[in-house]
Design a protein around this nucleic acid. Structure first.
Length: 468
RNA sequence: GGCGGGGUAGCCAAGUGGUAAGGCACGGCUCUGCAAAAGCUGCAUUCGUCGGUUCGAUUCCGACCCUCGCCUCCA
């Protein structure tokens, strides 16, 4: 069964067929962060989604060349650089590093390229030059350069490929002041913003005078530079479809005359505790906030991966607690399998299970169905384990099956916590007390350990300590 | 106002023109000195509302209600 994804261009689920069937890697571009602050959990839903897409394509045997940009110049960044009296590079460097670290916390595979906008000014200028040469862009009296949607349409190009647009009905300019620009038409957007005093040191020379790039042009310049004028797959959050991605298409196709991206995918936003995240509601979480509250990256990743990417998802603290329990169940099963498998490490995975898992994902990444396959599989294994019916070879095979599925999920196994020797001593004491039927003392020691963050698990093979 | 998603058990969330996956929570059981942990097991006559098509609709059609997103800051 072929991989099928919803394509925003066609508004339907269609087979994912690479541009180059001969085997050139799939070019995949995901709009990255604007590094003006620590990224929040909503941002990470999109990046975990992109990571799932990439991992699944690789699982299905595609080679993927993954590019994710870092937007390190933009209005908000400039304002905050000015306010914090620092340099652009210093300011953005801090948040870029934090962002990349956060991605590692969520076990997202690193992109093959993470280009910074400020390092592709030359390419952006060149792209703008081409657009002006083709008569699609113009310099306004304010010295800024704008993209003309009328001219673009006049060339037979289509503006409004990702969203249905009806300019007569649109409330253009309602939410954002439009009188600060001298555009020919309200819908036109900036390619190059002329330098203004508030920009401080943040400007570059260009044929149109000093200034800085508009927001959309960076993605066109960097994606085409690294992946070619036409590439396979472009992803981002749903809010980016318009205008950002629409404008990327216009700039790129306007400049090259070639189709830009074959397949567009957009991830839905998330709600937190049923409401749109906002600082005033107290439901605004960065990844770091959640880690501080005691969650782990894998729990957060798991929770973000429990819902379909095109549905808005309600992220809750209850859900996070549930994620911990659910993962523990998987971990427990794997630990038992490892114990039985012992030295038997090489085994072929269970292809029937893998096929069920993969076909769920083939269907536009139906991750819920994929989890159902996993939990059914876990229950079957647990039944067999409880009945002592699992020999080392099937245990090893099950572990191999998990390992293969986990290349897509990126959940991994729970890291084994080292038990401090003094706690082991307490455990020994408690075992001795129990043996002597001094249950009062045994229970006291159990409570003591619990207070120290370790639970005693009395199993058929003796007592074990487990980190809470 | 235009465009686009959604409304399925306490919560999260799949799915199908033929009688509702999975996870969490909760109850029961096994294990235990008692617990915990773990495992097993049970848990929606019902899919926003009202109509229509149909032998049969949660699934298709229509209307309505609610909700979320986009309409040049946005993952």
């Amino acid at each position: 069964m072929a991989v099928r994804f919803f394509n925003t261009l066609s508004r339907s689920v269609q087979e994912f067929a690479p541009l180059d069937p001969a085997g050139k890697p799939i070019g995949m571009y995901c709009c990255g962060p604007t590094v003006h602050d620590f990224a929040h959990i909503g941002n990470f839903r999109t990046f975990v989604f992109a990571d799932l897409v990439r991992r699944f394509l690789e699982f299905r045997g595609f080679a993927v060349k993954h590019v994710m940009n870092i937007t390190d110049v933009e209005d908000k960044i400039i304002r905050r650089v000015r306010e914090s009296n620092t340099t652009l590079r210093e300011f953005t460097g801090k948040y870029e590093a934090a962002f990349l670290e956060d991605l590692r916390t969520l076990t997202c595979l690193p992109a093959h390229h993470t280009p910074r906008a400020t390092e592709y000014i030359t390419e952006m200028v060149e792209l703008i030059r081409q657009l002006i040469a083709r008569g699609i862009a113009y310099q306004a009296p304010d010295n800024s350069v704008y993209f003309s949607i009328d001219k673009y349409r006049g060339c037979g190009c289509k503006y409004g490929q990702l969203v249905k647009l009806n300019f007569d009905e649109m409330r253009v300019g309602e939410r954002v002041a439009s009188d600060e620009y001298e555009k020919e038409s309200l819908a036109d957007f900036a390619l190059w913003k002329a330098r203004v005093p508030e920009d401080g040191d943040v400007f570059w020379p260009s044929p149109w005078g000093e200034g800085r790039p508009g927001w959309h042009i960076e993605c066109s310049a960097m994606s085409m530079k690294l992946l070619g004028a036409s590439f396979d797959l472009h992803l981002g959050g749903e809010d980016l479809a318009f205008p950002h991605h629409e404008d990327e298409i216009a700039q790129s196709e306007g400049a090259t005359g070639r189709p830009f991206v074959k397949h567009w995918m957009h991830g839905a936003h998330l709600l937190v505790e049923g409401k749109k995240m906002s600082k005033s509601l107290g439901n605004f979480f960065t990844l770091r906030d959640l880690l501080t509250k005691g969650s782990t990256g894998r729990e957060i990743r798991y929770l973000l991966l429990t819902a379909h990417y095109r549905d808005s998802f309600n992220f809750t603290l209850d859900g996070l607690a549930g994620a911990r329990t659910a993962l523990a169940r998987i971990d427990e099963c794997l630990a038992k399998l490892r114990e039985i498998a012992g030295a038997t490490t090489t085994a072929a995975p269970d292809t029937a299970v893998l096929e069920k898992f993969a076909s769920a994902l083939d269907d536009d990444l139906n991750i819920s169905a994929a989890w159902a396959v996993i939990y059914d599989w876990v229950r079957d294994l647990n039944r067999a384990l409880a009945a002592n019916e699992i020999q080392p070879p099937p245990a090893a095979a099950a572990l191999a099956t998990w390992q293969r599925m986990d290349t897509v999920l990126g959940i991994g196994g729970k890291p084994e916590a080292e038990v401090p020797p003094e706690l082991l001593a307490l455990l020994d004491e408690r075992n001795a007390a129990r043996k002597a039927k001094d249950f009062k003392r045994g229970d006291a020691l159990r409570d003591d350990l619990k207070a120290k963050g370790w639970a005693i698990e009395d199993t058929a093979k003796g007592a074990k300590l487990k980190k809470l």
